[in-house]
Design a binder for these strands. Structure first.
Lengths: 197, 197
DNA sequence: CCTACCGATCGGTAGG
DNA sequence: CCTACCGATCGGTAGG
């Protein structure tokens, strides 16, 4: 505890970012010290600066990369799919799957976005809002087509999206269910939630 | 910014805890300094100790009180209700309503429980698990009775509960929807999710 | 990659 | 309720 790890593997930018990911997810940005990250990879704090710019830049890298991938995954998942139910199903499978597979990134995005300095914070929040609106647009499309029945697409979209987000909080990759199984169950939940089936 | 507030009202234990609630929710336990809390109520840091024991005790008070109330609210909500669908409906209304009304407390519970020292952390987590299991038991009861259709009660219980938790992240008390409206919409979502309706 | 060290800030205490 | 101050720790730099 608190001690330096043996210099197991070669220290690289990648291994530093990996350690930061784990520690930020575990203790939060403010709760994880650079010293802890250095210990984790087996070097002293100042040596981290051979691999990274600053603690803030570590956070920025994680949050920007993650939210950009959420958006591009979404676009890929629904492109050239016209059926609105299938669009929603794919959007939910993709989003839930991401939160099962990239649990640490998801936890950090949802916990530490307020620790991110401007202008990156606004970029991250704009990307998230774009995704939210796009999912909401699918729900509205389904309601207009008479396929979905929801009282308020705003509430329904948050219900569905935040349900997916929280997969990161309970999913256990060593557990009985695979990420794919959980994602498809969540898609089923979402379709029931909007009144299909 | 960062300056001391004018000594508006009398400083009391209650006003200190109120300021801590707001700041912990905004910035997280590690991100909020006692100095910020002192500034918020218009005194110097050492004077806080006339009202509280320590920063850690502030966190403990928030988390223990909140999780105890979650459990007692749940018990009150479902006692003497025999119909399983109605039991689930009440459990969800109660839990969602709490997360709309006590948003700050909910955010802190879900973000900073790992910053809580033992033995309080284990107490909080035990109380949460008890609530989770009780809600899961309702779902299993409904499945056994043939009223609910869910593939996996474990996944369904997390889907429902975490959906409610996240109300704290988006609900706006000044928005178009009241806490009661959101809570009853969420109850409808939950009942659809388990395959009724 | 290291040691040595920086100013700033942290939670908290002494003493009134 | 305050000022004065504590040791510890923070992110980060200098210089090799």
């Amino acid at each position: 505890m608190g001690h330096r790890a043996p210099p197991r593997d070669r220290v690289t930018e990648q291994s530093v970012r990996e350690a930061a990911l784990t520690l930020f997810a575990q203790r939060g940005y403010h709760g994880a010290a650079l010293r802890d990250i250095a210990n984790e990879v087996g070097i002293r704090t100042p040596s981290l600066y051979n691999h990274i710019e600053s603690k803030q830049e570590l956070l920025r890298g994680i949050l920007l990369t993650t939210t950009e991938q959420v958006w591009s995954d979404f676009e890929t998942a629904i492109e050239s799919v016209s059926d609105v139910t299938e669009r929603l199903r794919r959007a939910v499978v993709t989003y839930a799957l991401r939160h099962a597979i990239h649990r640490r990134e998801a936890l950090i995005v949802n916990r530490d976005v307020e620790s991110l300095d401007e202008p990156a914070r606004s970029e991250v929040m704009a990307l998230r809002r774009r995704h939210e609106r796009a999912v909401r647009a699918i729900i509205i499309e389904g309601v207009d087509a008479g396929v979905f029945q929801v009282e308020d697409p705003f509430v329904a979209s948050f219900g569905i999206l935040e349900m997916c987000v929280s997969v990161a909080r309970w999913f256990d990759p060593a557990g009985a269910l695979s990420a794919d199984q959980v994602a498809s169950e969540y898609a089923e939940f979402a379709l029931r939630l909007v009144g299909t089936r």
